[in-house]
Design a binder for these strands. Structure first.
Length: 193
DNA sequence: CATGGGATTGACT
DNA sequence: GTCAATCCCATGC
């Protein structure tokens, strides 16, 4: 599951004529309390315990739609939350859906933002990410093996210490707060000293 | 059937 | 930095 969260970085998400490159993910597993599947098998968590390669889509805080990729074999509750994309295609459509924002890096820089920009709906819950309305495709050559930063997950109160958030280093579309980049940090401390 | 919490965002101070 | 918006669903009476 952690390997999947890393490998999804650089992959593309396609919905209709809109497409983006995944630059930030978070892993969740039924063995830890931040995961919806922690409570066991219920109508809500059924998809997370189901076969891998499906979309787990749900509404958060009554407002935002979240998109996850289910992983691990059926019976094991694990999913990777897709937290940010680099817009690739259909940028004008994304802008319209997001309310005409000017900056491209504000279109998909958060889990609720990217579903709004792509038009992902709650009805996409349980759909096949290889053949459904929402698809995940292999990375383009230039997005293979990006430099990856890991850090604690965002916006949770349970199991907050697990470093299960992954982001492409230096990408402007990564949501805030950004995981610290060791290279930049060392340069800054050198400049200060 | 009523209640409460949550993997967020944007507007405001 | 704070705060409200807003709804699905698990849980408890």
């Amino acid at each position: 599951m952690l390997a999947v969260a890393r490998e999804l970085l650089g992959c593309r998400v396609v919905h209709g004529r809109t497409e983006g490159v995944i630059v930030e993910t978070e892993a969740y597993h039924h063995s830890e309390p931040a995961c919806h599947a922690f409570v066991g098998l219920t109508p809500r968590t059924k998809v997370i315990f189901g076969p891998p390669g499906r979309a787990y889509v749900y509404r958060s805080y009554g407002i935002h739609v979240m998109l996850n990729a289910v992983c691990e074999p059926q019976g094991e509750g694990a999913a990777v939350l897709i937290r940010a994309l680099a817009p690739l295609r259909g940028v004008e459509m994304m802008r319209e859906r997001r309310g005409g924002l000017a900056r491209e890096q504000d279109l998909c820089s958060g889990p609720g933002k990217l579903t709004q920009a792509l038009g992902v709906e709650l009805e996409d819950n349980g759909s096949d990410l290889a053949a459904g309305v929402v698809r995940v495709l292999a990375p383009a050559p230039e997005w293979r093996e990006p430099r990856v930063l890991a850090g604690p997950r965002v916006g949770i109160t349970q199991a907050a210490e697990l470093p299960w958030r992954f982001a492409v280093a230096g990408d402007p579309n990564v949501s805030r707060p950004r995981p610290p980049d060791p290279l930049r940090a060392s340069r800054r401390s050198r400049a200060r000293a």
